[in-house]
Design a protein around this nucleic acid. Sequence first.
DNA 1: CATGAATCTATTTATTCAATAGATAATGGC
DNA 2: GCCATTATCTATTGAATAAATAGATTCATG
Lengths: 158, 158
Amino acid sequence: MLSQKTRYSIRALQHLADHVGTGPVPLGEIAEKQRIPKKFLTVLLSEMGRSGLVSAQRGRDGGYWLAKDPTEISYGDIVRLTRGSLALVPCASRWAYESCTSCVDEEGCRLRMVMLTVRDATADILDGLTLADDFKAFAADKRIPALSVGNNVTAEQH
Amino acid sequence: MLSQKTRYSIRALQHLADHVGTGPVPLGEIAEKQRIPKKFLTVLLSEMGRSGLVSAQRGRDGGYWLAKDPTEISYGDIVRLTRGSLALVPCASRWAYESCTSCVDEEGCRLRMVMLTVRDATADILDGLTLADDFKAFAADKRIPALSVGNNVTAEQH
DNA sequence: CATGAATCTATTTATTCAATAGATAATGGC
DNA sequence: GCCATTATCTATTGAATAAATAGATTCATG
């Protein structure tokens, strides 16, 4: 699962992407519009500043803006920077590899092979989508179906 | 990330898959061979028993075995049963959907659209692989490259 | 120099996860 | 019937991580 931190960060960046060219956006506005706790968001935006995703200006009329063009910031980048890895298991990360504790045989580990494949598929998607992408077109293209709300799942739905 | 619980569970099931037809495998053997804390494993195997993945027999010569044919147990099943969901965000789960707290507009949420796509790609992989699959062939087919160990990442490696 | 903003480090609080404990129940051999 | 063996269950502890908050500081601008 993605942490709140990652999710808040993505929403904040999307907000900034939607306001490119309109000058610095103050933290208070992002917090309010995106329903993110203000004080928490200061921490997140600071980190994103340090990692080069956003720039900021202090003082009157200050605020935040994207440090790069929205086409240059992919969802993969954001997840890597805020979460450390795209993978579901540290030994299947290509960006932040860590060997498993309590692993019996990493070379032959089937779990790791599966998870490497998943991580590559995930990367294909997340690295191919940027903050600039048009999600209405994207959704139509992928034909994302509506979700059945609740937990009423049938055997076939696995 | 997958929890230890999910990882241990998968390793335990793989062990059982490798011993189909040899009679009940006692917990102690699984724990030792797979390096899983014994007491913890009892909890995991109990849960897997309740969810119908394994069967067990008590007493002398007792132990565990797969409740179904290994071809009938996919990695997707295991992850869903032990973790609750394949998705990276609860509102993108099809099996265990939950709406986000602090979500502004779920219908139009771009993060959710991306994550639905990722969850579908993940499901394609994990539901297509079972405990019976031959991972040497799988790895060769997918041409899984060796990992560079450590965190020495260059800009191009994203 | 006062005001409005971001920035930084530390701390609290909540939640989740991993592991262990301890008592119980079934099975089979003698 | 009794004992050793093995699984089962519920609860608890302990540790780690994540979420959120606090408070002092710095910088820009009118």
